[in-house]
């Protein structure tokens, strides 16, 4: 187990470093001169030079990169030039909302997917199972932001049941938070639940052929009870892998959904920085989002090892 954690931890560190370098280089190579972007063509050469010095852009790339990464550990990423906020504090204050959206929708869609997928597998020979499959297929094709807009239109504006945007923090009011996050979470979970349903179905169909299901039936359980008691737990294990592959898409979906529902998370901050072409803010934000994906990935890999001893003990703990 320790070996698995060490191996995954090393991969996490290497990936995080690679990610930070890619983000840094992309913005340096393609970004043009940040001072010119900020000041427009209007600034004098002296003023641009002064701004460059103020932002630390007159130093070598290596120095800039090291001071950026160092700042990340010290909690100092500098100031946003246009909006005058402290970048690190702003990220920290918005992280909770984005994590809530991502983690809750991941959990909800996984549970929904396992239930619907199991139902579909147990009814694979009749129309009800086929119907679940068709609904899942449709769900995957539906983009979260479109569902979000429809929910705003029908549930918020026409029915007036739930707010169409804005966020009440968990610490302020639990019901307020649930009310403000219910529609965004619904929008995010539909497509993801579709993905999990399809994988849970095929995973369950495999498990139903296993010997232990036959053994359980020989001991007098009905096929259905044997499948639910012994099958679901085993069929759920591969879903952890499917989950790790969905993390990137989930975080991307969260960025978009925050814009749809005007939620003050990392996504909205990123959009504002992209529109204002604030390379320094985008650099830090993009890296934090990548870091969230990588850390969640790491945690799910470790969970996978805990769930399945065969993975834990495998030599070098590689996953094929």
């Amino acid at each position: 187990m320790i070996r698995l954690i060490a191996h995954r931890g090393a991969v996490l560190l290497a990936s995080a470093m690679a990610g930070s370098i890619v983000v840094f280089l992309l913005l340096r190579l393609l970004g043009g001169d940040v001072a010119t972007v900020i000041m427009g063509q209007g600034g004098t050469p002296e003023a641009r030079e002064a701004l460059r010095a103020e932002l630390g852009l007159d130093r070598s790339w290596l120095e800039q990169y090291l001071s950026w990464i160092g700042g990340l550990f010290r909690g100092d990423l500098g100031q946003s030039y246009a909006a005058q906020y402290d970048i690190f504090d702003e990220i920290m204050s918005r992280l909770g909302l984005t994590l809530s959206l991502a983690l809750i929708s991941l959990a909800v869609s996984m549970v929904l997917g396992i239930i619907a997928g199991t139902y579909s597998a147990l009814n694979s020979r009749n129309a009800r199972g086929g119907l679940v499959d068709v609904i899942a297929q449709l769900g995957i094709a539906i983009p979260p932001f479109w569902v979000g807009l429809l929910l705003i239109s029908f549930v918020s504006v026409q029915m007036g049941w739930l707010p169409s945007g804005g966020y009440v923090p968990w610490t302020e009011s639990f019901t307020g938070a649930v009310r403000s996050l219910f529609l965004p979470l619904t929008a995010l979970s539909i497509a993801l639940a579709g993905v999990f349903t399809r994988f849970a179905r095929s995973s369950m169909l495999d498990v139903l052929n296993e010997d232990y299901i036959r053994t359980a039936m020989a001991k007098g359980r009905t096929w259905r009870r044997a499948a639910v008691r012994h099958g679901v737990r085993n069929a759920a294990i591969p879903l952890v892998t499917v989950g790790t592959l969905q993390l990137g898409g989930l975080l991307a979906g969260t960025v978009v959904i925050e814009t749809v529902f005007t939620l003050p998370g990392l996504g909205r901050m990123l959009m504002a920085a992209v529109t204002g072409r604030e390379a320094l803010v985008v650099q830090s934000l993009a890296f934090v989002i990548i870091l969230v994906i990588l850390v969640l990935n790491f945690l799910m890999d470790v969970a996978y090892g805990l769930l399945d001893p065969r993975i834990r003990d495998a030599e070098g703990a590689t996953r094929e």
């Binding site: 991307a252 920085a273 992209v274 390379a279 985008v282």
Partner: peptide, 20 residues
């Protein structure tokens, strides 16, 4: 795998900051 973990939309946002 690392490249896969980066969502396409995030790549696009970084590029849009740089290239418009």
């Amino acid at each position: 795998d690392v490249a896969l973990a980066l969502p396409g939309i995030l790549v696009a946002l970084v590029l849009a900051t740089a290239m418009g």
